[in-house]
C-alpha cells in the first residue's frame, strides 16, 4: 500500500529561497526562484508543475486572510510502538522539523472568490503524504464541518499511500474517509478533489476517487500501485506516460486536467454549478414562489457569481 514514489521537494519549511535558481526537471532550464514562485511554481518554459507545499497551495487558493485552520492540535500517537531501523516517533519528529507541519494534511475553512469552502490539503513532504490516524480524523472533521455549514469540501491530494507505521489503523482510514464521503453525499454537499503529484495507494483508493468531480494537475502520477512495484511484477519497463494525469484522463479515470493558474477559478465554477443544483434540491418545488431566494433565485445568484470570472472561459475545453 504505502510505496516509494520519488518527489523532489527539497525546500525546507515551505516557501522558496529568494535570489537562488532552480533547474526544471523536465526542460532543464535554469529558473529564477522568485519568478518561479510568482508563476505559482510552474516552469514558464515548458509548463512543468513543481510540487508545492500545503501552505503554498492554501496561499494560492484562499482569498487573502480567509484561511482558518481547524483540528490543528492533532498529532500522531505511536499505537503500534513501531520500530524499523528507527522508532516511528523519531521519524515523526524529523518530519515536523523539516516541514514545520504537525501532519501530512491541513484542514480548515477558507473563501475562494468569496465562496465559503472547507479545504483539506495534503503535504507530500510529511512522511510522503502518508495517511495515518491523524489524516483520517482530520478528513473526517473537515467533512463534518462541510455538512454542518453546507460549505463544499475541496480536497487537494498528494500521497504515497497509507502510513505503514500505524499498521492496520492506517489501512482502516480508507474505510473511515469513505464513510466521511458517504456523510457528504447524504447531505448532499459538493465534494471535489484535486489530484496532484503523486496521488497513489490508499488515498487514491478511498476519498480521492470518490469525489463528485475529480480534477488533476498536469503531469501528476495517479496510480494505485507504485510504478516500481508494477515493473517488478510484470518484469518490464513502464511507458513514459504511465499513470500520469493525461493517461488517466484518456482512460476515463478523472474529469479534467486543470493548470495551477486556473485551479481556483475552475473550482469555483464547478462548485457553483453543483451548489446551484443542491440549492434546487433543498428548496422543494412548492416553495418556488417564496421570493428571490427561492429555487430559481438561488441558482441565478450562483450563476452570476461564477460568470464573474470573465478571464476563465465559461465553457470547459
Amino acid at each position: 500500500m504505502a510505496q516509494q514514489v520519488s518527489v523532489d521537494i527539497s525546500r525546507r519549511g515551505g516557501g522558496h529561497d529568494p535570489g537562488s535558481a532552480e533547474s526544471c526537471p523536465k526542460c532543464s532550464q535554469l529558473l529564477d526562484s522568485d519568478e518561479l514562485a510568482a508563476n505559482l511554481m510552474v516552469c514558464s518554459h515548458c509548463g512543468h508543475h513543481f510540487p508545492i507545499t500545503s501552505r503554498e497551495r492554501i496561499g494560492q487558493l484562499a482569498d487573502e486572510g480567509s484561511w482558518t485552520e481547524m483540528a490543528a492540535n492533532l498529532r500522531s500517537a505511536d499505537p503500534l510502538e513501531f520500530y524499523d531501523l528507527r522508532p516511528y516517533v523519531e521519524r515523526i519528529e524529523e518530519a515536523e522539523y523539516d516541514t514545520g507541519l504537525s501532519e501530512a494534511m491541513l484542514v480548515g475553512t477558507a473563501r475562494l472568490h468569496k465562496m465559503d469552502v472547507v479545504l483539506a490539503v495534503m503535504d507530500f513532504r510529511f512522511m510522503a503524504g502518508s495517511m495515518g490516524s491523524v489524516v483520517g480524523e482530520k478528513f473526517w472533521r473537515a467533512a463534518e464541518r462541510a455538512v454542518e455549514t453546507r460549505f463544499p469540501l475541496v480536497a487537494v491530494c498528494a500521497s504515497g499511500g497509507a502510513r505503514m507505521q500505524e499498521g492496520l489503523l492506517s489501512l482502516l482510514q480508507m474505510a473511515k474517509t469513505t464513510c466521511a464521503v458517504e456523510m457528504l453525499s447524504q447531505a448532499p454537499v459538493p465534494f471535489v478533489t484535486v489530484l496532484t503529484h503523486p496521488t497513489t495507494g490508499g488515498v487514491l483508493a478511498s476519498y480521492a476517487t470518490l469525489a463528485d468531480v475529480i480534477m488533476a494537475e498536469p503531469g501528476s502520477l495517479i496510480s494505485f500501485s507504485g510504478p516500481r512495484v508494477i515493473e517488478q511484477t510484470i518484469k518490464e519497463k513502464l511507458p513514459e506516460d504511465f499513470g500520469r494525469a493525461e493517461s488517466n484522463l484518456n482512460h476515463g479515470q478523472i474529469d479534467m486536467i486543470v493548470e495551477r493558474a486556473e485551479l481556483k477559478n475552475r473550482l469555483v465554477q464547478v462548485l457553483g454549478m453543483l451548489e446551484g443544483g443542491v440549492a434546487c434540491a433543498l428548496q422543494p418545488l412548492w416553495e418556488e414562489e417564496a421570493g428571490p431566494a427561492g429555487r430559481r433565485g438561488a441558482f441565478a445568484q450562483t450563476l452570476e457569481r461564477i460568470k464573474s470570472f470573465a478571464h476563465t472561459p465559461w465553457r470547459s475545453s
Binding site: 476517487t209 508494477i230 504511465f242 482512460h251 476515463g252 479515470q253
Partner: peptide, 13 residues
Amino acid sequence: FPGIAAEERGQGG
C-alpha cells in the same frame, strides 16, 4: 493486482 491494464481501468477507483 499491480499491472498497467488494471491501473488504466481504475484499480484505485
